[in-house]
């Protein structure tokens, strides 16, 4: 059984998370695409705490001892999934930053080389 206190805590934390994300979007400090996960995550937790029968049903289905554990499982699962995708995202970001820096450096070198050649050409003429 989900205790009333547990359900209230879940709801408060979920709404707090969602409100924080929306505030960040309002301040133009967060891209909407990145906030969607947290909004859906909060939504799921609110639904689970408003309708305890869902967790009881899920716990029975998976053969878990208590419905509280079912909710923990859901939270765990979603956070691990998010963590996994974030690892991939960070890796790709790092790679792209590296690529960008190298492209800028190579372009600058090319520019210098060209200027150098022009100067050499001019000094030979004079």
């Amino acid at each position: 059984m989900l205790s009333l206190v547990f359900r209230i805590v879940l709801i408060v934390i979920s709404i707090g998370t969602a409100a924080y994300m929306l505030k960040k979007i309002r301040q133009s400090k967060l891209q909407i695409g990145h906030a969607i996960f947290w909004l859906v995550f909060s939504g799921i937790l609110v639904i689970l705490s408003l309708i305890p029968d869902l967790a009881i049903w899920g716990a029975k289905l998976l053969g878990i001892y208590s419905s509280t554990n079912f909710i923990f499982l859901i939270i765990f699962f979603l956070l691990i999934l998010k963590c996994f995708y974030m690892t991939i995202e960070i890796s790709s970001l790092e790679y792209r930053v590296k690529e960008l820096a190298q492209k800028i450096a190579l372009a600058e070198r090319k520019e210098w080389d060209r200027e150098q050649e022009e100067q050499d050409g001019q000094s030979k003429e004079s």
Binding site: L22, I25, R26, I32, A35, I36, L39, V40
Partner: peptide, 11 residues
């Protein structure tokens, strides 16, 4: 989600 939720809170 963006249309139904987020956009209502934007400035």
């Amino acid at each position: 989600v963006s249309i139904l939720v987020v956009q209502n809170f934007r400035k």
